[in-house]
Amino acid sequence: MLIALALGYGVALAVLVAGPWGWALNRLTVAIWVQLRYDWPLAPNWVTPEHYGVLLNVVLFVPLGALAVLLTRSPWWAVTVLAAGGSAVIEAVQWLWLDRQGTWVDVAANTLGAAVGAAAVTPRRRRGSPRAGRPAPPRRP
């Protein structure tokens, strides 16, 4: 089930980042901004459509980080480093060969999203657990 979910996410991510809909995605972020700024006045005055674009890039890579940790059992930081490299490649391809705008802000946002997803599913070490090692013996006065 997890592998099928990862494959579906991977295909959807590839279609989204490689497709010719950069303009449509920009229009989507503006529509969200208008909705939250004017129709439902939730956004502060200083928030711009670009802020929503960054937030959407963060959200886009949260599942990548989570799925990578769950499938490979790699540490969160290793998944984050690999996601940063993968995001840099995606943005470079978009900038060089596709009719899209690749930016370093997108790389940072994607990396943050992957880190959040990876950290969210990384088990915490518990005191006295075999993975954390033996608990320290009690100190005597």
Rank of each mutant, 00 (worst) to 15 (best):
N110D: 11
E91K: 09
D106Q: 13
V79W: 00
E91T: 02
D99F: 15
V116F: 15
W95A: 12
L98A: 00
V93T: 09
P75Q: 10
S74H: 00
A83R: 02
W77Y: 08
W77P: 00
V93D: 06
V93R: 06
A115D: 05
V89H: 06
A83Y: 00
P75C: 09
L82T: 05
W104D: 02
V107D: 03
T103C: 05
D99I: 14
D99L: 15
P63L: 08
G102F: 15
A84K: 03
D106T: 13
A115T: 06
V93Q: 01
G102A: 04
V107H: 05
A66I: 10
V89I: 15
Q94E: 11
W95T: 10
V79D: 02
A108T: 07
L96K: 14
S74W: 11
A88G: 12
V105M: 15
W97R: 08
I90Q: 02
G65F: 01
T103L: 09
D106I: 09
A83E: 06
V62S: 00
W76E: 03
W104A: 08
L64T: 01
D99N: 14
G65S: 07
A114K: 07
L96P: 04
W104Q: 02
L67I: 06
V69R: 01
G86R: 01
G113S: 06
G65R: 01
R73Q: 09
A83D: 09
A109K: 12
V116W: 15
V62W: 12
V89K: 08
W95D: 10
V116C: 15
A92M: 15
V89M: 06
L70M: 14
L71P: 08
Q94W: 14
A114I: 11
V69N: 01
A92R: 14
V79G: 00
V89Y: 05
F61W: 11
G113P: 13
W95M: 13
A66P: 11
V93H: 09
R73I: 10
N110A: 08
N110E: 08
Q94P: 06
E91L: 01
A83K: 01
I90C: 01
P75K: 05
